[in-house]
Design a protein around this nucleic acid. Structure first.
Length: 495
RNA sequence: GGCCCCUUCGUCUAGUCUGGCCUAGGACACCAGGUUUUCAUCCUGGCGACAGGGGUUCAAAUCCCCUAGGGGUCACCA
């Protein structure tokens, strides 16, 4: 019998947003949208030591920045609240009590020391490390008496005999033998519940219909399925997403480089590119189309189409995709996205950005083919802000300039001087300069290479006459004059 | 090591369920050429894979079995 689609992500607020979490969020969200269901954000702050409200904020802010929106969550409430696990502790205690009374859970008085020794022995004998279920044999009344007397205990789930089947939407049916499932701890000695316990209690209480998460959780699933049964609650369908892998083909981790969403935000990846790339990790639109909108993704997304094998994170492809999105932006949008990076680099302050908005937009539009990330702009245009007599020359630019020599440049400067008084008319100047070079029977490069070096100090870049227009006539003339001297002076020095 | 999952170009993947249209398609990267005042963008072309072995079948990347390899997980973490 079908039930309303309700999915969730349950991140623990213990750090930054991992790309894996971002993808899980994206897939859950897309699935909910596609099926007309609800997407829930639940903060999994079971680990009180490591959970912080800053991290929770970061999760909320980061996912919002990406454009992923949840229907219920700690920041916006909802009919199944509260949405922070720590605030649901009473219901967890209640569930634990019920399970204990029903005999589905039992008190374990084993000390951490004994457990450690047990584990060591099992490992030494190459046996499966699992609790030996010693306390499961205890008489409930006796156990209750010991607990009343103040003896510390943990609560373990009593795994029943038999087997557990998980009908995974991505992987098909997966069967586990219950003897292989440990009598895992539901409530710790200090009274705090564990993740595997609360996650099921909350999923049940919030009527979660589908659990879509990373493959590392697949082995937890039988424990959870058994708990749903013990709770007399209908279990959700499961879908385990393939892992995102690092270059070593192991689970993507900090070791592999930048794995947090914030890293990519700081580097200036367009949000559309991030979403698009994440969608491609374990899913494909039609096998042909690589660049597609979030809208198309949502329309076409089906859990059944998710691939099973792990996906190695391809930083090159991600960067390429970023460039595709960046280049598709309007000049105004692109300028707006690049502005903070230009400001951070100390090129322009906010006031200048406002006053010279049109100018900045033109510059950004002129550089767009050469950058893939917003953060790459400042380096490309820094020369525009250099002092005219101190433009940094790249080695290759200088080499090109030197190959052609400054003679023609000096001649050009004299020709140019009277033509720049009334501002720079790029198209007209381009035409006139071409004619001027043709008159002399020279190749374009003989003038353009030294000129490019003089103006920008770079071997490549936008159209020279656009650069002149951005720079303004006075600056151009000064830079060319300085370059003529510089080219001549060094030649002297070489002798 | 136990349990579980996975296996198509270097990488992301289409094709696998419903065997034939697959001399296996697309993309990134790489290489070559073209366009351009340069760089880049862009365009064209090239390189490059069904892990191995059996079986079923007229026919297998697609179905079955075995082997190998990789990964995940084995906490009073989440």
């Amino acid at each position: 019998m079908p039930r309303p689609v309700r999915v969730r992500i349950a991140p623990s607020p213990t750090g930054t947003i991992h790309l894996g979490l971002a993808r899980t969020a994206l897939f859950n969200w897309a699935f909910a949208r596609r099926s007309g269901g609800r997407f829930v954000l639940r903060i999994e702050d079971t680990d009180r030591e490591r959970s912080t409200s800053e991290s929770e904020q970061e999760i909320i802010e980061g996912l919002s920045w990406l454009g992923i929106e949840w229907d219920e969550g700690p920041d916006r409430g909802g009919p199944f609240g509260p949405y922070r696990q720590s605030e649901r502790i009473e219901s967890h205690r209640e569930a634990a009590r019920t399970l204990l009374e029903a005999g589905r859970a039992y008190r374990c008085f084993c000390t951490p020391k004994r457990l450690a020794e047990l584990r060591e022995g099992q490992q030494a004998r190459k046996e499966t490390a699992a609790y030996d279920r010693r306390c499961r044999a205890l008489d409930p009344a006796e156990a209750a008496a010991r607990a009343d007397a103040g003896e510390p205990f943990a609560l373990r789930f009593a795994v029943p005999p038999g087997e557990t089947r998980v009908d995974d939407l991505v992987r098909g049916e997966v069967v586990f033998q219950n003897v292989d499932i440990d009598d895992w701890i539901m409530v710790r000695g200090d009274g705090n519940p564990t993740y595997n316990f609360v996650v099921v209690c909350d999923d049940a209480a919030m009527e979660i219909s589908h659990v879509v998460r990373g493959e590392e959780h697949l082995v937890n699933t039988p424990k959870q399925v058994q708990l749903f049964a013990a709770l007399d609650s209908r279990p959700p369908r499961f879908a385990h997403l393939p892992l995102m892998l690092g270059g070593d083909r192991k689970k993507l981790s900090k070791r592999a480089g930048d794995v947090s969403l914030e890293d990519y935000r700081a580097k200036g990846y367009p949000t559309g590119a991030i979403l698009n790339f994440l969608a491609l990790q374990g899913w494909a639109l039609d096998g042909e189309t690589e660049v597609f909108s979030t809208r198309r993704f949502v329309e076409a997304f089906r859990l059944e189409d998710v691939s099973k094998g792990g996906a190695v994170f391809d930083a090159d492809k991600f960067r390429w995709l970023a460039g595709e999105y960046l280049r598709a932006e309007s000049p105004a949008d692109l300028a707006g996205h690049c502005a903070p990076f230009a400001a951070a680099a100390g090129l322009l302050d906010e006031r200048q950005l406002t006053e010279r908005a049109e100018w900045f937009e033109a510059v950004v539009a002129g550089e767009r083919e050469r950058i893939s990330l917003y953060s790459e702009l400042p380096d490309r245009i820094a020369y525009l802000f250099a002092a005219d007599d101190a433009v940094a020359w790249e080695a290759k630019a200088e080499k090109n300039a030197r190959k052609q020599g400054g003679a023609l440049l000096a001649e050009y400067l004299e020709w140019l001087r009277p033509r720049l008084t009334g501002g720079v008319d790029a198209p007209a100047l381009r035409e006139a300069t071409r004619a001027w070079i043709a008159e002399r029977g020279a190749a374009f490069g003989v003038l353009f290479q030294p000129l490019r070096c003089a103006l920008a100090g770079k071997a490549g870049g936008p159209d020279l006459f656009d650069i002149m227009a951005w720079l303004g006539g006075e600056a151009c003339l000064r830079r060319i004059a300085v370059a003529i001297e510089r080219l001549a002076a060094v030649r002297e020095g070489e002798r």
